[in-house]
């Protein structure tokens, strides 16, 4: 009896410890984010107060009004164009990376061809190179080609950054779909192409969506390369635009935080979508008994 009581107590202790550890971890991860969000709604003077004001005294949307150019105070930062640039660049590069990812992933999953292993390894190794290491060569090439400070320039960079990942992820999803399904569809009267669109594509859809969201987030949040390759409102993206809030002697923390929130919101929405898709997963009940 005593043994079981003891073990129950130690189980309880373990549980508490686990909760505590989880809580601390979440605290470390979430507090900076929360602080940013909170700061977005507070005036600069409260943000910079010493000692810090932990519980906000006033919350307002003034900072957002400021950066979007309405309200009494205004900052001369073209957040609207940055937002549009970010959206165009992230969406376009994501769509292209997905198209290449689906074609490439499907080929790797279904066909045999020469140097398949080598090509795949090459793609993965390319992904292992930190983007910033490529920034100088890319900058030199792009300046020759006149692609510096253009949306196209950044789109190309982001596509090549994302393609290895989308191919890898989508390849994995197609691999899980038994070849017999496409064969059954072909016997049922489909062309190879129809079998792909009617059977294999719908089954890989959640994987493709997940790859799309990841690619979008990568492009949306990318700072290092964008800061080198963009100059003006023609191509500057939101993360680069954040730097506009730092003047020589002052930093407009309130505005910066408000803009950070604007960057975070689409990312958050998309993360929720990807979560749903990843959890939904795939059901292969039709294949294995």
């Amino acid at each position: 009896m005593t043994v079981s009581v003891e073990s129950r107590a130690s189980k309880q202790a373990k549980k508490v410890a686990l909760w505590l550890a989880t809580f601390l971890l979440m605290l470390v991860m979430c507090v900076p984010g929360l602080w940013v969000v909170l700061s977005a709604f507070r005036p600069n003077r409260e943000i910079l107060a010493k000692p810090p004001v932990w519980v906000p005294e006033e919350l307002s949307l003034v900072n957002f009004g400021k950066i979007f150019g309405f309200g009494a105070e205004q900052v001369g930062i073209p957040v609207g164009s940055y937002f549009t640039n970010s959206l165009i660049i992230a969406l376009t590069s994501t769509v292209i990376a997905l198209i290449i990812g689906v074609a490439g992933g499907y080929s790797f999953a279904r066909y045999r061809f020469r140097f398949k292993g080598g090509i795949f390894l090459g793609l993965m190794l390319f992904r292992a190179v930190p983007g910033i290491a490529l920034s100088l060569p890319v900058f030199m090439m792009w300046s020759r080609l006149g692609l510096v400070d253009t949306k196209l320039g950044l789109i190309i960079v982001y596509v090549s950054l994302n393609v290895p990942f989308t191919i890898w992820l989508i390849d994995g999803f197609f691999r899980q779909i038994p070849q017999a399904l496409s064969e059954a569809a072909q016997v049922d009267g489909c062309t190879r192409w129809q079998a792909f669109w009617k059977i294999e594509f719908p089954l890989a859809k959640s994987g493709i969506a997940a790859a799309g969201v990841f690619a979008f987030l990568t492009s949306w949040n990318e700072f290092a390369l964008a800061s080198q390759l963009t100059r003006s409102t023609d191509s500057k993206t939101l993360p680069v635009g954040l730097l506009d809030f730092t003047a020589q002697f002052t930093i407009d923390w309130a505005g910066m935080c408000a803009m950070a929130v604007i960057i975070i919101i689409p990312a958050l929405i998309l993360t929720f979508i990807v979560q749903k898709h990843l959890i939904a997963g795939l059901t292969f009940g039709g294949v294995k008994g």
Binding site: P178, A180, L181, E183, A184, A185, Q186, V187, D188, G189, C190, T191, R192, K198, I199, P202, L203, L282, T283, F284, G285, G286, V287, K288, G289
Partner: peptide, 28 residues
């Protein structure tokens, strides 16, 4: 190609389309 041979096949693992119900599997 298979679709022009007017044959049908039952696979070892059945190869039913997982994203369709039985009715749509039959009618595909």
């Amino acid at each position: 190609p298979p679709r022009k041979r007017n044959i049908s096949m039952v696979f070892q693992n059945y190869a039913l389309y997982p994203h369709m119900n039985v009715r749509d599997n039959l009618g595909f």
